[in-house]
Design a protein around this nucleic acid. Structure first.
Lengths: 250, 250
DNA sequence: AAGTGGTCTAGACCACTGA
DNA sequence: CAGTGGTCTAGACCACTTT
């Protein structure tokens, strides 16, 4: 199967990237289905009039993301759909959105404070003054999550109005923050009396908890969060992959 | 800083892989620290007497894993430690091992059965007969987790003895299974009476739950699991990364 | 034996950054 | 301006799988 590809040599977008994009599109559009054989590298290079390494670079990209499977001596085939790699910065599965409910967030508290746990998690000096935000997330007026965040000093001018208007991450992005990694811990526990009241929990209802440390590409801290969720409203979806170590064998 | 590298051209291990391994080792050994400048590609290629693309291939590997940061026109530096990429197939954080306790698993049930939920999760026909395994995990005689697994027909000859002796994943690997992706959902709920009894829970104690579908590189199902954990014994550590799409811009 | 992907070379030119 | 990484070429030989 020859995938139709149009390369623009005058574009600033590299050839291998143009090629990768169009191959991805062809697979996502269902032009090629899982298990289908893929045109071999040499033929594709000749057909598109580019060098083989350039084709390889594009294909390697798709292989890394699990869209293609290459087997030496055999050929390249389109991979099964379940193994397509997809990592999300927050893999929260929000039933509210599914049900078309109105998510809404209310800022309960906004103040500067020191907090040894948050500072430690972000790699800041213990006595660092951070911006603390407490928010209650609601779905159709029903409280569903209680969220606590601590932000490093460079964001300490955020206002309650900003946070009311959009999500924390949207506000941070507007401020030039680019979180790229987050270390999360997910657990469960019994709620405190205050949490029970705020979230409207019945006696014996458990709490789903998640704490998160987020950093940007330079390793600078972006936020520390310590949140709790109604167990009947939230669950976390996580896709994990076999580790592939740098310098590791195929 | 010139990292000492020894390449063996007679080895079956590719040059770029030998190089990548030794560069990783140099960074992990602290020979190069975060922020340190990295030798430039051209010099390194000349010094090691390999072509520049070969050096690039090794370095690209480290960049992909977040150990190095390349900046056009500037140079390559060692990245900050917190953003090193590390995905684990099961990112279970097991307090038992930390405390040096003896983990132990008891097989409570092992039978063939059909199960629509499990079959559906694995993409098998609803009426498929699978091997069902129920296990209780203990730490120093104290029950801490109740695990339910369903395995596709090709593994239906597993025995309770095998499962008693080692972990499910070790047994599966011995059978030639190579799980590479898992979709997990983590949540919390109230325990049933049976779960309360088996796990020795007090009234009002919550349950941490995790269900998982695992597949191999070909997309074939390996196992479906539905587990519950004592909230005071377990938590899940997950590291998530900014998605990088195939064909995406740097 | 034929065909595939895997590795490697020895260059070239370009784009970007900082002095 | 010099130095860096980013892209690309036109080959070559090898390792592996299937026929």
């Amino acid at each position: 199967m020859q995938i139709p590809v149009v390369l623009d040599r005058s574009s600033t977008v590299p050839l291998y990237q143009q090629l990768a994009e169009q191959l991805v599109a062809a697979i996502e559009d269902g032009l090629l289905k899982p298990g289908d054989p893929f045109e071999n590298e040499v033929d594709m290079a000749r057909r598109l009039d580019v060098s083989r390494p350039t084709v390889r670079q594009a294909i390697a990209d798709l292989v890394r993301h699990g869209l293609l499977v290459r087997r030496r001596g055999v050929g390249t085939t389109v991979a099964s759909a379940v193994i397509h790699r997809r990592d999300e910065l927050t893999s929260l599965h929000d039933d509210m959105l599914r049900r078309g409910q109105q998510p809404q967030t209310r800022v309960l508290a906004l103040r500067k404070e020191t907090n040894p746990v948050a500072a430690r998690a972000l790699g800041l000096p213990i006595e660092t003054t951070m911006l603390f935000v407490e928010r209650l997330r609601m779905a159709d007026q029903v409280p569903t999550a209680l969220m606590h965040n601590w932000l490093p000093p460079r964001y300490d001018d955020l206002t309650a109005e900003e946070l009311d208007a959009s999500s924390l991450y949207a506000v941070l992005r507007d401020r030039g923050a680019h979180p790229v990694v987050a270390h999360q811990t997910i657990g469960a526990r019994r709620p405190t009396a205050a949490e029970r009241r705020l979230l409207g929990l019945a006696a014996g209802d458990p709490l789903l908890t998640m704490s998160r440390r987020a950093f940007d590409a330079e390793g600078a801290p972006v936020e520390f969060g310590d949140h709790c969720y109604r167990y009947d409203q939230y669950a976390f979806d996580v896709t994990v992959h076999e580790p592939d170590r740098p310098g590791g064998r195929a």
